[in-house]
Amino acid sequence: MNIFRLAGDMTHLLSVLVLLLKIHTIKSCAGISLKTQELYAVVFATRYLDIFTSYISPYNTMMKLIFLGSSFSIVWYMRYHKIVRRSYDKDQDTFRPYILMLPCLILALLINEKFTFKEISTSFFLFVMWTFSLYLEAVAILPQLVMLQRTRNIDNLTGQYVFLLGAYRALYILNWIYRYFTEEHFVHWITWISGLVQTLLYADFFYYYFQSWKNNVKLQLPA
């Protein structure tokens, strides 16, 4: 564990808490894309399949449970909570999740660190699911970014949520650089490339977020 990775995990945790705070206290999910939240639930479900089989540390297990619990409860709130669901604007949230999930699944079958298609074993299945979750996480924010461009006035909590979500993966990139130089044979191209793509997708959001902070004006993304 290094400072970049810890900062990344804490930023990720904070982003989830900001979103839960918004939904739980003001009982509103205005401006939040349910599609992105569902994709994130799938990301965590497919990434943490081995939560009970491969134990790393108390911290690792606790964080996995928090991310699984929070992502599924956010989806539950937005779908079934009688007050929250009323503030969900499904006409603005039109991105079709399958056009993201299918290519990621095919890509995970073709490009993963095992490459051996022949041994259809559980470990191969877990590996493909884990790789799928990496690719899916890289693009999971797209429905939310599209929705932000359609929602004229983005409220502060939503802006902070997206900013923290983007910042966490940027910190992970610093973590990978640090681990590359401090641990021998720590090379994971698949993780690095998908993490880089993920962070680059936030580039224009970061730009407008910074501009709105610097000029102290409301955050707005150009349509």
Binding site: H12, I56, N60, E113, F127, E183, T191
Partner: peptide, 10 residues
């Protein structure tokens, strides 16, 4: 063992 360290991150 190498795979392990790939999955030691969240």
């Amino acid at each position: 063992e190498k795979e392990k360290d790939a999955h030691d991150e969240l």
